[in-house]
Structures are given as structure tokens and as C-alpha cells.
């Protein structure tokens, strides 16, 4: 964010506690020192007000980054973010766009109970006019965020609280595969700082996080790590899984997924939102539409369980689309159950 703000005077960050508190999750640490309170703006707890403000400012020509402390709190602002932002360009016949980024934490896993544990990707990705990115590594987060800020369309940028503190209070770092190579393949860390300014990951470009020959596993965001954990386990059983991270839901790089399915003939889709009318359901359907003849079994979805997020740690963890569920799904779909 800071790099993009240095580059473009029109970019500002607004959200609850982004300035003096340094960000509820310390994402904007030190930024108010550098950019001052004109550009790093502490907003009151008024999601409708400040997200609508972002849309208006974007129509006028600024480049707002609107931070939701959590995507769970965006629901009170639904009218602004899904009724106004993505439709402005169309309704105005191309006159007023909305180049705003809405970002914040998304997903369950912190024992916050069901009001605070939303995964909004399935609900919002059905809205035409918006773009949506769900990064799974610091590298992707950086490249995708920079692209989001430069984009001319509204972008929903879904971060994961559980991944902000990888290794600390957050998730264990499962990503042996991501640390394995540094030569063009998937990696964990962003590139060296000297390349920062031009490090843009384009939207609609999936990354093969781990290549394999036996089964395609598609996953977004935090579940990419569940999928990699599952892949490690399945490797021991002699099943070589290919993990594909589309990185953006809109646009969706279905081509890379289809290429993979043509090679492996099996497909599991992992998605941390609820199963009914979900991103996983959409990806599965598109696989059927585009690669039915190449499939040797049905597609299996692994979603969050179809219940409000429970508080109890054991229940909450079980509800997630975790590695064991993925392992079982891969075994089942490849007739290894």
C-alpha cells in the first residue's frame, strides 16, 4: 500500500483504526507517520458512511482503499459496496467508474463466533462489475494488492486474519512446497525490494502452487495451505496432487484449471465459504461444462460445513475445509478410498 501511495497521490487509506492505532491488525503500521492524516484516515464505526464515501471519492477521481476491520462488518454497508460500487459504470453508461479497493479480513478460524466469521466470497462473487482477489501468500498479497490499487474497477480484496500472523498466533506454515524453489515457481516471499514498484500480479492468472499428475485440487486463500498440507500427506500415499490457486475469483482463470484436469482427470474444489451456491459450486460447474469428457469421476467440493460458524475451538476447526477433509475427498475421487 505504501509503495502505491508514494507512486500515486490520489491513493488514500480509510478505515477504522488505520492511523493512530496503526491498524487493528497492524496492517497499516507506521503509515500515518509517512503519509499524514490527510491520506491515512481514521474513520468512525460507520461502514455504510465511509464505504459510500469511498465510492463517491472514486467517482470523483480518487483511488480509495477502504479497509474493513473484517469483511464480516461490511454487511451493514452492503448497499454501498454491492449496489453502488459495481454498478456505477454500467448505470451511468460508462461515465463514472469506481476504482476503489475494499479490503479486510475474511474467513473463520479465530473462535470469533458466527457474526465475526464470514467468508464473503461466494455471496459477493456473483455480482457483475466487481473484481475479487483472495491471496494465499505474502507474495501474492503484494502483487495482487498493487494490481488492485491500479485497477479501474472496484476490487474486493479478501485477506485472512489467520494468515497475517503465520507461525505466530496464526496458522502453522504448511508451505514446504512454497519454500522449495526460488526460480520462477511459486514462492512464499515477495521479490527483493528493488523490484517492488513493478511487482504486479495480473488478475485472472492462476498459479500452480504444487504441480502433480494424479488429481487437481483447486483452492483459494487460506485453504490453499490446507490443500498443500493434504498434498504432503497424500504424497506419502503415492498420490501426486496438483494444487491450483486461481488467486482471483473474478476474473476466474478457468483455463489453467481445465488444463490441469485434462492431465489428471480428477478434480476437488476447496472453498472456505458455505457449499450452497458457492465459489466451489461454480468452479465445479465450469469444470463440467469445459472438461466433462476428461473427467474420470465426479467433481467433489470441500467447503466450510453448512452451519453458522461455531465458537468452540473443536467445532470451529472441524467446520473448516481442513486438510483431512481434502485428503478424504482426493482419495474418494481417485478411487483410493
Amino acid at each position: 500500500m505504501a509503495e502505491e501511495m508514494r507512486r500515486d497521490e490520489r491513493v488514500f487509506l480509510m478505515g477504522e483504526e488505520v492511523a493512530e492505532y496503526n491498524g487493528a491488525y497492524k496492517v497499516s503500521q507506521g503509515m500515518v507517520e509517512e503519509f499524514g492524516p490527510r491520506r491515512i484516515v481514521d474513520a468512525p464505526i460507520s461502514e455504510t458512511g465511509f464505504s459510500g464515501l469511498g465510492v463517491g471519492a472514486a467517482m470523483y477521481g480518487l483511488r480509495p482503499i477502504i479497509e474493513f476491520m473484517s469483511w464480516s462488518f461490511c454487511l451493514v454497508a452492503a448497499d454501498q459496496i454491492i449496489n453502488n460500487a459495481p454498478k456505477m459504470l454500467y448505470m451511468s453508461g460508462g461515465q463514472f467508474g469506481c476504482p476503489a479497493v475494499f479490503r479486510g479480513n475474511n474467513g473463520a478460524g479465530g473462535q470469533l463466533g458466527s457474526t465475526h466469521s464470514w467468508s464473503v466470497e461466494s455471496m459477493f462473487s456473483s455480482v457483475p462489475g466487481l473484481k475479487m482477489a483472495i491471496p494465499s501468500t505474502p507474495r501474492d498479497a503484494k502483487g495482487l494488492l498493487k494490481s488492485s490499487i491500479r485497477a479501474e474497477d472496484p476490487v474486493f480484496f479478501l485477506e485472512s486474519e489467520r494468515m497475517l500472523g503465520f507461525g505466530a498466533r496464526g496458522d502453522k506454515d504448511f508451505s514446504r512446497y512454497l519454500h522449495a524453489n526460488g526460480n520462477g515457481g511459486p514462492t512464499w516471499a515477495p521479490p527483493a525490494p528493488e523490484d517492488d514498484d513493478n511487482f504486479l500480479i495480473p488478475f485472472g492468472q492462476a498459479e500452480v502452487k504444487k504441480s502433480g499428475t494424479d488429481c487437481t485440487v483447486v483452492a483459494f486463500g487460506r485453504p490453499v495451505h490446507f490443500a498443500l498440507e493434504a498434498a504432503e500427506q497424500l504424497e506419502k500415499e503415492g498420490i501426486d496432487v496438483e494444487v491450483i490457486d486461481p488467486r482471483t475469483v473474478r476474473p476466474l482463470d478457468i483455463d489453467t484449471i481445465i488444463e490441469s484436469v485434462k492431465k489428471t482427470h480428477y478434480c476437488v474444489v476447496v472453498d472456505q465459504s458455505w457449499p450452497f451456491a458457492s465459489v466451489a459450486a461454480e468452479v465445479g460447474m465450469q469444470v463440467y461444462e469445459n472438461a466433462l469428457d476428461h473427467l474420470d469421476n465426479k467433481v467433489i467440493r470441500v467447503n466450510n460445513d453448512d452451519v453458522p460458524a461455531p465458537y468452540s475451538r473443536a467445532l470451529e476447526q472441524e467446520a473448516l475445509p481442513h486438510a483431512r477433509k481434502i485428503v478424504e475427498a482426493v482419495r474418494a475421487v481417485t478411487y483410493n478410498a
Binding site: S51, L53, G54, G56, M59
Partner: peptide, 8 residues
């Protein structure tokens, strides 16, 4: 809120 955004 959009109008407030214009003012902002």
C-alpha cells in the same frame, strides 16, 4: 454517503 465522498 456518495455525496460526502465527492466533498471528501
Amino acid at each position: 454517503p456518495l455525496g460526502i465522498g465527492l466533498a471528501f
